[in-house]
């Protein structure tokens, strides 16, 4: 009898050699340029990329220059090739990154896009220069959609990175309650005919919130605290634990402010959840600190 092998740790490690900013780097075949840069200690801005989602390479903020390519290439999606010569800091790259960031900042509210701030500074983005001569630049402004107790959607903050669509659909939840509708600058994340989330297929897993980089979809708890100017991320603790519902063993990160849970996330690199949860894990914690639960008595 031949003993079948466990291929979980398999994948033949053929290495590929490339140059990044003049530095030699050797990484396994199939690695993306973005990962190779990481290996070389080079930080790359990303927006639509996430380790638990399929790269869509739409934001273009991670572009790099690859010798022999007419245009810049998205480092998050392009695999390394033997002998590739990559430049991440040329004038051309800096220009495109700056422009992408400026474009976004000129039309979208990035106040809560924590991860983008330093890059806006780094690339000296100046979104103000699009409002000139009494001709204001078009923005994506609209009123926040507050349609239920768990989520809010504030598409004034939406950079259309497709992450929420991927998390709702192919990459995790397979519910497809939201998709991109419309075209061009008028493209929006939307339910069918823009019906409310409660009227849509949404099952409130919150995986869209989990991947949103700008606060365009967020927990109602966070939204309310922010409205009350009481959202204090610097004072929050994050504790990793395991969900109490069902036996799958999903890892939770409990974000706690003033000894109260204010939101729940899951680590994207964990083999059980890959960062994704269900409605119970994401929102079912309220009994720990009951406020106005209709059918439960207060804790003794």
């Amino acid at each position: 009898m031949t003993l079948p092998t466990n291929p979980s740790g398999a994948a033949s490690e053929v290495n590929v050699n490339l140059t990044v900013n003049g530095q030699s780097v050797s990484v396994p075949a199939g690695t993306t340029i973005h990962r190779a840069c990481e290996r070389a200690g080079i930080d790359t801005p990303t927006l639509c990329w996430a380790e638990n989602l399929t790269p869509v390479n739409v934001c273009r903020v991670c572009v790099v220059e690859v010798e022999g390519n007419r245009t810049l290439v998205p480092s998050c999606a392009r695999a390394v090739e033997e002998g590739m010569v990559v430049n991440t800091d040329s004038e051309r790259v800096r220009h495109s990154r700056r422009m992408v960031l400026e474009f976004l900042a000129s039309g979208v509210d990035l106040d809560q896009a924590e991860g983008l701030r330093r890059w806006l500074d780094e690339y000296e983005a100046d979104p103000g220069r699009y409002d000139q001569d009494g001709l204001p630049a078009r923005t994506v402004y609209e009123e926040p959609k507050v349609q239920d107790n768990l989520y809010i959607r504030d598409y004034s903050r939406c950079v259309l990175c497709y992450k929420c669509v991927e998390a709702c659909g192919d990459d995790a939840q397979h519910t497809y309650a939201i998709a991109v509708s419309g075209r061009g600058f008028d493209a929006r994340i939307s339910t069918e005919f823009d019906v409310t989330l409660p009227d849509s297929a949404c099952v409130y897993c919150g995986n869209c919130i989990g991947v949103c980089p700008t606060g365009a979809i967020q927990f109602k708890t966070e939204f309310d605290l922010r409205q009350a100017s009481d959202w204090r991320p610097d004072e929050q603790t994050v504790t990793q634990t395991v969900c109490s519902y069902c036996g799958v063993g999903c890892n939770l990160e409990l974000h706690v402010q003033d000894e109260r849970i204010v939101k729940v996330t899951s680590p994207a690199d964990h083999s059980v959840t890959h960062g994704h949860l269900c409605i119970k894990g994401r929102f079912g914690w309220q009994y720990v600190q009951p406020v106005d639960a209709p059918t439960r008595q207060r804790r003794p």
């Binding site: 390479n57 739409v58 934001c59 273009r60 903020v61 495109s96 422009m99 992408v100 474009f103 976004l104 000129s106 039309g107 699009y130 630049a137 078009r138 950079v159 259309l160 991109v180 419309g182 075209r183 061009g184 600058f185 008028d186 493209a187």
Partner: peptide
């Protein structure tokens, strides 16, 4: 009008 809206350079660039 014809930009599909997928990537930022084109979606915003054509408007600007």
């Amino acid at each position: 009008g014809e930009s599909c809206g997928q990537c930022v350079p084109c979606r915003v660039g054509t408007v600007r």
